[in-house]
Amino acid sequence: MSIETRLAAVDRAADKYFPTERDDQFLLRLNRLLARDRDGNPIASPRKDRGTGEAQGLFVIEAAGGGNTSLVKNGLKEHPLLQSNGEGHMPWIMLDAAPSPATTKALGLDILYKTGYRDVSNRETEQGIWKLLKHRLVLLNTVFVCIDEGHDLLGAASPFEIRNMQKRLKNLMQGEGAVSVILIGIGELQHLAAYDDQINRRYQKLAFDDISPVRDARLLKGILHTMCAEVAIDAPKEPDLIERLVHASRRRFGWFIKNTLRALEIAALAGASRLEKVHFAEDWAIQEDAEVGKNVFLSREWSKIDLSEKPLPPRSKKGC
């Protein structure tokens, strides 16, 4: 197999989704947000509180690099009740990131654009934008509105803006055209609920654990072998590679996948017949710019290498 063919295979492997038990957990939560028919089967409509008539939302929380964005997008895309039946039907909408700056007007505009509506002026009032958005969600029979990097809705906003943001999200889950709101983010996302007990009660929480080289050994080894097979390269044999790779990935599933893909690319470029530790080490040197003694894939004391995030240095004053 030529190098070009292998590189093309690496690209195809990057598009492959690897389901895990995490997907089952998300599906369970997703179905709990859906209304049920008389037989207890979920239907394509948000489940509403019998007392208030309001839909409920979901916080999906995991450290950066965990892969929760891909998980949520795949779960929504593959759910049998959330398939679009054509133009004018949009069961779910996913915003790839919170707007910057994260104002309620900007958020309303971004979601409105995602519905396919473009005929709105930036001079439109905030109230007018959200009223139009609610109307669009009714027309499109939307069930879920999902916002990635939901923690950025906090950002550096003032307490007033944060409360206003909460009210707007709450409004999406109320009245005619109510939808379930899913916010994806890191641990800071939980602070969004801390401002208001009612908001806290409106959102279920789904937090994922870090991966473990012991508990998840079979799963991770299987994924590694599958990815190698996709590229027609033999899987590595080094007994401690999974442990090193998990440590290098900060115990995060998404980074485990990305680190493996980059190592496979290096192996393909080298014309290697087997993926080996040296390919991961080369990628680590490129990505982390670390000396040999701090290279997780080369050091004998790799488990002692501190990979915790360091705070950014303070900005120097102008003129200094």
Rank of each mutant, 00 (worst) to 15 (best):
R38W: 11
F26E: 04
L33R: 00
K48L: 15
Q25C: 10
G67D: 02
S45L: 15
L30F: 02
Q25E: 13
P46R: 02
G66W: 11
D23L: 10
L58V: 15
Q56P: 00
P46A: 02
G75H: 03
L58A: 12
L28K: 04
N41R: 07
I43M: 09
E54V: 07
L76S: 07
V72I: 15
A35E: 11
F59V: 07
E62T: 11
G65N: 10
N31C: 14
R32H: 15
I43D: 05
L34S: 01
D49M: 08
R50C: 03
G67S: 03
N41F: 11
A63E: 14
R29G: 00
E62M: 14
S45P: 00
D39N: 14
I61Q: 07
P80E: 05
L34P: 00
K77H: 11
R32M: 14
D49S: 10
G51L: 12
N74L: 07
I61Y: 08
A64M: 12
T52W: 11
P80A: 03
R47E: 13
S45M: 14
R47V: 09
K48Y: 02
L33P: 00
G65Y: 14
L58G: 07
D39Q: 15
D24P: 00
P42K: 11
E62C: 12
G67A: 01
G51N: 08
S70L: 13
A44V: 11
L71K: 01
L28H: 04
N74C: 09
A44H: 08
G51E: 10
A35S: 10
A63Y: 06
G57A: 08
A64L: 10
G40I: 13
R36Y: 01
K48N: 03
G67C: 02
A55T: 09
A35H: 04
Q25R: 13
L76V: 12
A63V: 08
N68M: 08
R47K: 12
R47C: 12
Q56N: 01
D49W: 06
I43H: 07
L34W: 05
L30I: 13
N68R: 06
Q56I: 01
L27M: 11
T69M: 03
F26G: 00
E78G: 02
E54T: 09
G66F: 14
A44P: 05
A35F: 04
T69G: 03
G40D: 11
Q56K: 04
R32G: 09
G53T: 12
E62F: 06
V60L: 12
D49R: 04
R36P: 00
E54W: 12
H79T: 09
L27T: 11
K48M: 11
D37V: 04
Q56F: 13
F59P: 01
K48I: 15
G67T: 07
L58E: 06
F59D: 04
Q56Y: 08
G65A: 13
E54H: 13
D39Y: 14
K48R: 13
K77Q: 13
L28Y: 09
F26A: 02
A44K: 06
N74G: 01
F26C: 03
G57M: 05
K73M: 15
L27R: 05
E78K: 10
F59I: 09
G67Y: 01
F59K: 02
D23F: 07
D23P: 00
L33C: 02
D37M: 05
L33E: 02
G67R: 01
G75D: 05
G53H: 10
